[in-house]
């Protein structure tokens, strides 16, 4: 469960306020969507929750399963079950995708005092998860994200999410750059991960993704705060009228 209380965030090395009194709760078992215009602070929110160092929290709190994460670094947060699917997944030259997946899985197992997976079991899990997402076996041997198409990169993010089994998953504009077929595969991947003990937060600009990943709640974000909360119908309303009303309301 994710709880954000009255959060205020500025850029670390600039006097620019980006998030301003934002409160939000995503319960376990819930899929919440945040929609909002460009520049409303959606991506910043995902970075701040995951512990990126370019930002400074000037007020409020972020809690995962009732525990404040503000004092934890990004590694600890990840090992506590937080996963961020990046809007622009990063390329890591020379590091085979399989090697990267193993490093991540082992790091998390170690942090939790669990046993590392044996290689054959690990390979089996990766192959099965990859197959479901239509990821080619050859791709797993290639350096992570290097030369991957936009759709391949996004599928790779979902593969990582499926393997790491997070308690809280944040998907940042996962639909951007996807054609309709890829969108469906990615959405199926996310839907398969819906679970009573998992909270999922989907950040998106367009309603389109929500046709495939049906949210329980929809939040509208503008000017660094949540300005309206509702059910799935709110997304359709936004599609019809745009964000204009909300931008004005927040100002």
């Amino acid at each position: 469960m994710l709880e954000i209380r009255n959060l205020a965030v500025k850029l670390a090395d600039e006097d620019k306020q980006i998030i301003n009194g934002l409160s939000l709760t995503v319960k376990n078992g819930e899929v919440a969507a945040i929609m909002g215009p460009n520049g409303s602070g959606k991506s910043t929110l995902s970075y701040v929750v995951s512990g990126k160092e370019d930002y400074e929290v000037t007020g409020g709190d972020i809690l995962i399963d009732g525990e404040s994460v503000l004092e934890m670094d990004a590694t600890e947060r990840a090992n506590n079950g937080l996963f961020l699917a990046f809007q622009y997944p990063i390329e890591i030259p020379g590091v085979a995708t399989m090697t990267f997946l193993k490093a991540a899985l082992n790091a998390q197992a170690r942090a939790r005092g669990e046993k590392e997976l044996q290689t054959p079991e690990f390979m089996k899990r990766v192959r099965e998860a990859a197959k479901k997402l239509g990821i080619d076996q050859d791709m797993l041997k290639r350096p992570l994200n290097v030369g991957f198409s936009g759709g391949e990169k996004k599928r790779m993010e979902i593969l990582q999410m499926a393997l790491l089994q997070p308690k809280l998953a944040i998907l940042d504009e996962t639909d951007s750059g996807l054609d309709i077929d890829a969108l469906r595969i990615v959405a199926d991947g996310v839907n398969a991960l819906r679970a009573p003990d998992r909270a999922i937060l989907v950040i998106t600009h367009y309603q389109r993704l929500l046709d495939y990943i049906k949210p329980d709640t929809v939040h509208v974000m503008a000017r660094g705060r949540i300005v309206k909360t509702g059910g799935p119908e709110l997304a359709l309303e936004l599609e019809k009228h745009g964000y204009r009303d909300f931008v004005g309301e927040a100002a």
Binding site: S50, G51, K52, E53, D54, D73, A74, T75, A78, N79, F83, L84, F86, P89, I90, I92, P93, G94, V95, T99, F100, A103, A104, A107, Q108, A111, P143, Q160, L164
Partner: peptide
Amino acid sequence: EDQLFYCVQRGLSEEEATALIVNGF
């Protein structure tokens, strides 16, 4: 910074992340 953040977000420490990226290099 982006490469490092990507790796630590997956649970690696900064040092593990650096070593992984360097080994790739």
